[in-house]
Structures are given as C-alpha cells and as structure tokens.
C-alpha cells in the first residue's frame, strides 16, 4: 500500500497524465463543439482512427510533423463534413449517421494503411514529436518534468481548450453556436443561418478529433495499427456529458480520466496479488461513477439531436 501512495509523488506519473490526456482533450473539445451547435457526433471513434492514420502516413511519406497534424485535421474535417451533410441539411438520425461514419472511417483508414504496409510486415515507425526542452524551466525539479517537458501537441491541446472556452463564452460566433444548440429557430429569426453554423461547428469539431487521433501515432506509439484508438472516442462522448458541455470542465474530465489510467498502469506492477485486469477496468468504473455523480445536474443543449428544418416547428 505504501508503494501505491508513493507513486503519487512520482513526477513521471504526472507527466504521463498530461501525455495520456492529450488525445482525449482534443477529442472531447471536438465532440463538445459539435454538440454545443446541436449535433451529436458519434463518428468520433472513426475520425480519430482516420486522423491517426493520416498523420502517420504523411510523416511516413516524408512530410513534416506539423504537416502531418494538418493533414490529420483535414481528414477529420472531411469525415465531419459527411456527417454534417447527412444530419444537418438532410436531417437524418445523428446516431445512425455517426455510427456509420465510425465504421466507414475506421475501415477506410485501415484500407489506406494496407495499401502501404502489407500483412505480416511489422508496423513501420516514424520519428515522432519529441518532448520540448525549455531550458532552465525543464530543469526545475518535479514541475519541470511534469509541465515543461511535454511534446508540442500537448501544449496545443491546452491552448485549444482555453481558446474554445473563450470563444464560446465571449465571441459573437460562440454565442451563435451556443444559440444554435439551444434553439435554431431563434438564430434564424435573428437573421443568421443555423444550418451553416451547424455544418461549420461539426467540421471544425471533427478536425479537432482528427488531431487528437494523430497524437496517438505521432507522439505516443510512433506507428499505426488498427483498433489503436481503443474506445478513446467513446470516452470523449461520455466526458462531454461529465463536463456538462463546458470546455473548462471537459479539460478537467480528460485530465481526471488520464490520471486514473496512468495510476492504474503503475499500480499493476506496484501491487501484487491482484489480477491486472482489475486495474485495467478501474478507470472506466471510476468514470462511470463520476458521470453518475455529475451528470444528473448537467445542462443539455436544448436542441441537441433535433434536426432543424426551415419554417417548421
């Protein structure tokens, strides 16, 4: 038991928390942006897979790491555009379309991957994002290792959270997005186009999901393999509810889940006599518990999952 508590003062645990949280932060922010505009995006799991593959492929083909992130964002945005066209102007079921996008994008990512890498070959690795060296800051004991020795995308994720929180709360565009999720008729009555706003939000949110997926291949595992997203997308969908559709709380939720995950990894080796599967389950169980505690007070965007048709009530 002493070992288990000792782990908490270990800087590498806290550094791992930020690392594990990064793809979740991108994913949850992306899902949140879509939902604030009124569209549930269950395509997230597939879009993250697509982003992971596209980022990896770009770098594998000789591209720059940042070009890889950009390509991942564009591929995510394209998948998001399909989801948006099906659910917004056509008003189809957001569940069905989202799950369809997940199946389609995952399969397409795997297919493109197989065009390059044949079965049986071991997955080729790329040169990933390296932890930044911020000079003296990185040398500060404990804090330096936790906060100032992360890879660039991690800082990008934190900055995106701040930007989205500010944007939604303080800018005219953010207000228009929130209003579209609450009552698209009100948006139309004020002379704006709720359909365009929804499409834009879904495309932008999906781009973020793509970047989140790319972190997995470009900073965590250095190579692509199918099923590598491993339900992170679904976790993000749950985290949006946990966060009560607020970016600040979403960031917190992603960090909390990442903490559970990082801690259980270390507990697996530190505590003996308990099957490791118990620890593997723990983050999910704790997430469900947290969700139950928090979600009852959640304020759902009123028009979430309600298609908007002009001139109809």
């Amino acid at each position: 038991m002493i070992d288990a508590l000792d782990l908490l003062t270990n800087a590498s645990l806290w550094a791992a928390v930020l690392r594990i949280a990064t793809p979740l932060i991108f994913g949850v922010l992306g899902a949140l942006l879509c939902e604030r505009a009124g569209v549930l995006n269950l395509g997230i799991e597939g879009i993250m897979t697509m982003g992971a593959m596209a980022g990896w492929l770009t770098v594998h083909g000789g591209g720059d790491l940042w070009a890889g992130l950009a390509v991942a964002a564009v591929s995510g945005a394209l998948m998001g555009l399909i989801h948006a066209m099906l659910t917004v102007p056509l008003g189809l079921s957001q569940h069905v379309s989202g799950l369809g996008i997940t199946l389609f994008a995952s399969a397409l990512a795997y297919y493109l991957y197989r065009l390059i890498v044949t079965v049986g070959e071991s997955p080729p690795t790329i040169e990933p994002f390296r932890p930044l060296d911020l000079g003296p800051l990185s040398d500060v004991p404990f804090l330096g290792q936790v906060l100032f020795a992360q890879t660039a995308p991690t800082y990008l994720a934190l900055a995106t959270a701040l930007l989205l929180a500010w944007g939604l709360a303080r800018t005219p565009l953010g207000l228009a997005i929130r209003m579209t999720g609450e009552n698209p008729h009100a948006v139309e009555a004020q002379g704006l186009d709720p359909i365009a706003i929804r499409i834009g939000a879904v495309v932008a949110g999906s781009a973020l999901m793509g970047v989140g997926g790319a972190f997995l291949t470009m900073a965590a595992f250095n190579s692509f393999f199918p099923e590598m997203v491993q339900g992170r997308g679904w976790i993000c969908i749950a985290l949006v509810v946990f966060a009560s559709w607020r970016p600040g709380k979403a960031l917190l939720g992603a960090l909390l889940f990442a903490f559970f995950d990082a801690y259980q990894l270390r507990l697996q080796t530190a505590v003996e006599g308990v099957p490791y599967q118990v620890f593997l389950m723990a983050p999910y169980l704790l997430s469900i518990a947290a969700l139950i505690l928090v979600a009852r007070r959640a304020e759902v965007p009123e028009a979430l999952m309600t298609p908007y048709r002009r001139g109809e009530r």
């Binding site: 800018t171 005219p172 207000l175 209003m179 009552n183 009100a186 009555a189 004020q190 704006l192 965007p301």
Partner: peptide, 25 residues
C-alpha cells in the same frame, strides 16, 4: 417565442447584431 431558454436575456437580444468574426462581443 424564438428564444433560447438556457441563455440570458442579453445573449438572446445581442445575437446576430454583431459581425460573427469579431474577436470579442
């Protein structure tokens, strides 16, 4: 009424009166 119930009166009134691309309302 074309109002968003979860937002404030000011939010509901201001929507659409400013350019969407202003950095700050």
């Amino acid at each position: 009424f074309a109002l968003a119930a979860n937002l404030t009166v000011l939010d509901n009134v201001v929507l659409g009166s400013e350019s969407l691309w202003r950095p700050r309302s």
